[in-house]
Design a protein around this nucleic acid. Structure first.
Lengths: 167, 167
DNA sequence: CAGGTCGGTCCGGATATCCAACGCAGTAGG
DNA sequence: CCTACTGCGTTGGATATCCGGACCGACCTG
């Protein structure tokens, strides 16, 4: 593969972006933590599921905890890092509910009593993060919104991080 | 594939869960909307990128808009549904920054002036959505956290939607 | 002992991905 | 006119990944 934009999103997706990985997380959050149950609920081939679990454990998203020796059996639990991914699943589910699924197969209530509607907000001001309300600052030369330039183009306007409004 | 839990997350991932799909969205949000630039920035094979773009357009996440006839050229713009996925990317990026990447290649500022830290909150009460603060209600029989049961198990405690606390 | 559960691994075939090369339409320069 | 170059793909063939199902060892249950 040619060299791509350096990016934390791509890095994150290298861990949780493979097929079934996020569905494993879904099951774990639902409390389903055993191999057999995941196979049933996700509908993934057993060897693929085994590979995903290995990867998620090695990446520190899940941890393997013995719930029985003799026979030695493990369950998979989310780590702190893993729990931080709940928001991603909420947003995906909500998006699916809104645009794809007929009637939502699962409904959530928040602790406040209301049916859960998740909104992404800014931790500083508390207001929703909306298209056009953010500015991106690119820290690496040549990787602004224009894309990789041949390293020595129009010598002007280079050298400092470029920026762009999102939307 | 065996039958899996009915789930909006899975439905959503069927659209945006394939390799490179979310990276396409990333580029589009950065303002990069042409095929050639995406190929460079994402580092994806051209045929795969073409396939992803087709899929995202047909799913209503992107729309193809001509920016020149003669030669006929199109750019890809996010639809309203597409824009709703920004939150997912913010969370993934933040997670990657926190747990994977050394120094973030891109930094964001919110409109309020502060560096952006995205938090998922409940639209009703405004408080953060955290592990343990939500309850899931399963609308389809047999698909609670226990997983698919053989349809006629212990006849008790069936028929009504089960529920579970997340975490 | 026979049968069942749990957590995998292994196998051969189907599918998807990858990469380089090509096509095609138009534009720019000479 | 001829050549070169750009933008946006498509095509073909090698490679990687996924798939379903069979199989396995360790254990428990009757």
């Amino acid at each position: 593969m040619a060299e791509a934009r350096p990016c934390s999103i791509a890095d994150a997706l290298a861990i949780v972006g493979e097929k079934y990985s996020l569905l494993v997380l879904r099951e774990v959050f639902f409390g389903v933590r055993r191999f057999e149950a995941m196979v049933r609920n996700i509908g993934a081939p057993r060897d693929i599921l085994a590979a995903r679990l290995r990867r998620l454990v090695e990446a520190g998203v899940l941890e393997k905890v013995a719930y029985s020796r003799r026979p030695l059996r493990h369950e998979y639990r989310p780590t702190a890092a893993g729990l931080e991914l709940q928001g991603v699943l909420h947003l995906l589910r909500q998006w699916g509910d809104r645009h794809l699924t007929g009637t939502p197969p699962v409904v959530f209530d928040h602790a406040c009593g209301a049916p859960l509607e998740a909104v992404v907000t800014c931790a500083s001001c508390g207001r929703p993060v909306e298209p056009g309300s953010q500015t991106a600052h690119f820290q690496v030369e040549g990787w602004g919104m224009g894309g990789r330039r041949p390293a020595d183009e129009t010598a002007e306007a280079q050298s400092s991080p470029s920026q762009a409004v999102l939307g």
